[in-house]
Each structure stands twice: as C-alpha cells, then as structure tokens.
Amino acid sequence: MITLAFVSGALALLLAPGPTNTLMGLAGAQGGLSRVIRLIPAELAGYATAILPLSFLGAALLQAIPGFGLVLKGAAAIWIAVLAIKLWRSLSTGGKGKEISARRVFITTCLNPKALVFSLVLLPSPQTEGFVPHLALFAVMVIGVALVWGGLGVMTQISAAGTKRLMILQRVASAWLMFVSVSLLVNISLG
C-alpha cells in the first residue's frame, strides 16, 4: 500500500531546489519542455543507478564501512562544485552557457544526495512487496517534478528579455550549486 507519508515526503524532497532540479530548470530555459522531456530518461536512469544498489546494499555498507556515506557525500559535493564552476565560466566566455546534456543530468542525479534519503529512508525495504509499487510511483513523481522545474525555466524565456533572464538564471543556478556543494562539505566536516 502506498502511504501518504511516502508521497508527501518524496514530493517535498523532489520539489526542493537541488542540483538535478537546477539543471532541469536551465534545460527548460535553454530548449523548452521538449528538451526537458528528452532529459527525463537520464534523470530516471541516474536515480535508478543510485537508489537500487543503495536500497539493496546501502544499510549493510554503511554499517560495514562507516566512511562510505562520507565518501558519497564528498563525491557529490565535488561534482556539484564542478557543475557550478562550469556553468559560471560558460557565461564568462560570452556564450549563453553550455547546453544541458543527458550525461550531465545522469551523473548529477547519480550523485544527488537526495538519492541517499530515498533509498535508505523513504522507500520501503526491497524485500517487501511494497517496494516495486513505491518505486514506480517515485518514477512518476520524478517525471512530474522534472516537468515543473523545466516549466519554470521555460517561463523565464517569455518576452523579449528572455536571453537576459536566462543569463541571470544561469548565474543564480551557478551560485546555488556552489552553495549546495559548500553545504555538503560543511556537513561532512561537522559530521
């Protein structure tokens, strides 16, 4: 049975600003909803790549190797910082920014810290019969949230000032990604 707690928790976490949502918003601003739709399979594959192994092995790995979670958080923080720097530099060179690629969405989603919460906290154990229906509903929610963030990006392009708004959006997105990266690093050092 799908629980209200799962749906509300997963939606709240999925809708929260983060690295994948930032990329989907930028993709919407750069190429419209058709671009976002083409990137959704990469996001779904990224979440599957992160969530499935963590769901089946994560708890055991975290117990056996206490530093495993810190390594995952560190890798995510570094990748997010790299994304922020690349996004900022692409605007500094006079371009509109590099097109958001499926590869970038996939890697970012694989390293998204939200995947840890989904796999180790929100989704039921893979040994229960509720795991597959919850996972399927999660995939539907991922698609919906990607379209919401992509739609927000598209809205920045309405009117003649769209290009200027895109540049502002990319600067804000870059700064936000750096904030997320630093927050992860601070969390690691305090944890």
Score class of each variant (00 low, 15 high):
Met1Lys: 11
Thr3Ile: 07
Val7Pro: 03
Gly9Ser: 14
Leu15Ser: 03
Leu23Ser: 10
Leu26Ile: 15
Leu26Ala: 10
Val36Asp: 08
Arg38Leu: 09
Leu39Ile: 09
Pro41Asp: 01
Ala42Phe: 12
Ala45Val: 08
Gly46Ala: 05
Ala50Val: 03
Pro53His: 06
Leu54Phe: 13
Leu54Trp: 12
Ser55Gln: 09
Gln63Ala: 14
Ala64Glu: 13
Ala64Gln: 12
Leu70Arg: 10
Leu72Cys: 07
Lys73Tyr: 14
Trp79Val: 01
Ile80Pro: 00
Ala81Cys: 08
Val82Met: 14
Leu83Val: 11
Ala84Tyr: 03
Ile85Met: 10
Lys86Ser: 12
Arg89Gly: 05
Arg89Leu: 14
Ser90Asn: 05
Leu91Val: 09
Leu91Gln: 13
Gly95Asp: 08
Lys96Ile: 05
Gly97Glu: 04
Gly97Asn: 02
Glu99Val: 10
Ile100Arg: 01
Ala102Tyr: 02
Ala102Phe: 08
Ala102Glu: 08
Arg103Ser: 13
Ile107Val: 15
Cys110His: 10
Lys114Gln: 07
Leu116Gln: 01
Phe118Lys: 00
Leu123Ala: 09
Pro124Arg: 08
Pro133Val: 10
Ala136Tyr: 00
Leu137Cys: 10
Phe138Ala: 04
Phe138Lys: 09
Ala139Phe: 03
Val140His: 04
Val142Thr: 09
Val142Asp: 02
Val142His: 04
Val145Pro: 00
Leu147Thr: 08
Leu152Met: 12
Gly153Thr: 06
Val154Trp: 12
Ser159Glu: 13
Gly162Pro: 01
Thr163Leu: 13
Thr163Tyr: 02
Thr163Val: 14
Leu166Val: 12
Leu169Glu: 09
Arg171Ala: 11
Arg171Phe: 07
Ser174Glu: 02
Ser174Phe: 03
Trp176Arg: 09
Ser181Lys: 06
Val182Tyr: 06
Ser183Glu: 11
Leu184Phe: 06
Leu184Gln: 08
